[in-house]
Amino acid sequence: MTSSDSQPTDPGGPSIEEIARTATLARLALDQEGLEAARTDLTAILEHVALLSSLDVEGVEPMPRPHDIVNRLADDVPGPVLDRSVILSLAPAVEGDFIAVPKVLGEGGA
């Protein structure tokens, strides 16, 4: 362990409550059966991932990407953009020149 805020999952795997919380974060609507299936799958996968906990990684710098490549900055000038009509043609719901979405704010407003 390299940080006190982070603990590996209980050997029994994530709880149903944790799976439900994760599904909410992932914007997935799972029913009870879906949650149970996900718990079974994630438990088996995380058990395999636990192979990593036996390795000594003390002092090893995390490597988020291969090689030491860095993003190149582009000149701050306008480039080609898609025409508005093209963008609107891709949208599943349109009202006039706008993409239609459900009400964003709750009844009380914000």
Binding site: S6, R21, V49, L52, S53, V57, P62
Partner: peptide
């Protein structure tokens, strides 16, 4: 997710190195 990031993701990036 909070609470598991270091134990899984950060550790995996260390093993990657």
């Amino acid at each position: 997710s909070a609470g598991y990031y270091d134990a899984y993701y950060k550790r995996a990036l260390q093993v990657r190195r």
